[in-house]
């Protein structure tokens, strides 16, 4: 089976920062806003190179979303930066009315998503943001898996006209997708060919899915691995093509099973090709304090959990 090499652990938020820096050099319409989290969002280099195109809003996320919407009137492409919780739930109505319903070209860039934010605990670990954002008409929802992909996605969304939610994380994780890849919104990445089970993963769970596929391969189970970085619009064809071969599927995400990737996949399958599915996701719960690895283990979001889910779903065929 095809394997992927970890080029060295890196945080996805640094991929965002690198992508933003590049945009600062190549696209004069790109502007950035932050609500007092410059260091956490890795926006320092963009700010150093483009101080006139950076807006420090202070701890006022609602105002940040409104100002971003206003900046588009005049042709700017605003990238907002704060934690995922404060990028979505805290400002849902501002995004809904001033950005999504008003069809404003704002890029909502959200770091520290999910449990892997770690020790800060549940107040900061949003597990509902994908659901919140995918329900907004016209909103594109992207959850990247590593540094290289996050950098490429950041650059790509500047070219996309319309509101985008770009979700990434805090910890250093495996960096395994190609450097300087081209990121195509809405196009799933086929990572590993397999015949017995399809694993569809997003965000930090993609590397775990690859680890799971390796272990399953040693047990004689052939797993196909697909990286769904774009949850909306969903690449239904990639999913349907794969399950027509494997006849069963496991979805994996660092998010509540209510409202996440798994439900989007289930809708596609139930309409076009009803298929046994297992969900790697949190089970309608808040997170808690702990190290990222401890939390991912406790809430069943790692390679071991994916392996068990694959073995279970194969039996349901």
């Amino acid at each position: 089976m095809k394997t992927y090499e970890n080029q060295g652990n890196k945080d996805t938020r640094s991929g965002f920062g690198a992508g933003l820096t590049e945009l600062g050099r190549t696209n004069p319409n790109v502007v950035a806003l932050c609500a007092d989290l410059i260091g956490s969002l890795k926006m320092d280099q963009f700010i150093e190179e483009n101080p006139e195109r950076f807006f420090q809003i202070g701890i006022a996320e609602a105002n940040m979303m409104g100002i971003a919407a206003g900046l588009t009137i005049g042709g700017k492409i605003p990238f907002t930066g704060t934690f995922a919780n404060f990028s979505t739930g805290r400002v849902y109505d501002q995004i809904r009315q001033s950005i999504a319903y008003s069809d404003k070209n704002v890029k909502i860039c959200a770091s520290h998503a999910g449990l892997t934010l770690g020790e800060d605990g549940a107040t900061h670990q949003i597990l509902e943001d994908i659901g919140l954002m995918k329900m907004l008409p016209g909103m594109t929802v992207i959850n990247t898996c590593d540094y290289n992909q996050t950098k490429a996605a950041t650059i790509a969304i500047a070219e996309h006209k319309g509101p985008v939610y770009l979700r990434f994380g805090r910890p250093k994780v495996a960096n395994f997708t190609p450097v300087d890849q081209k990121f195509e919104i809405g196009k799933a990445l086929h990572l590993v060919d397999g015949t017995d089970v399809t694993i569809v993963a997003t965000g930090h769970l993609v590397w775990e899915a690859l680890e799971a596929a390796k272990a399953l391969n040693e047990k004689g189970i052939s797993a196909e691995v697909i990286d769904i970085h774009t949850i909306k619009p969903l690449d239904a064809k990639a999913i349907l093509d794969s399950v027509s071969k494997t006849k069963c599927i496991v979805t994996a995400e660092e998010h509540n099973h209510l409202g996440g990737l798994g439900e989007s996949v289930a809708r596609v399958l139930s309409q076009h090709n009803p298929t046994p599915q297992e969900f790697i996701a949190t089970n309608d719960t808040f997170g808690e304090s702990g190290t990222p690895a401890q939390l991912m283990e406790k809430y069943g979001l790692n390679a071991d959990a994916i392996i068990k889910a694959c073995e279970k779903v194969i039996k349901r065929k």
Binding site: G70, I73, P78
Partner: peptide
Amino acid sequence: QGMSVALGAAQA
């Protein structure tokens, strides 16, 4: 929400 939007347009 309008004051924030107006401020964004003013900055643009």
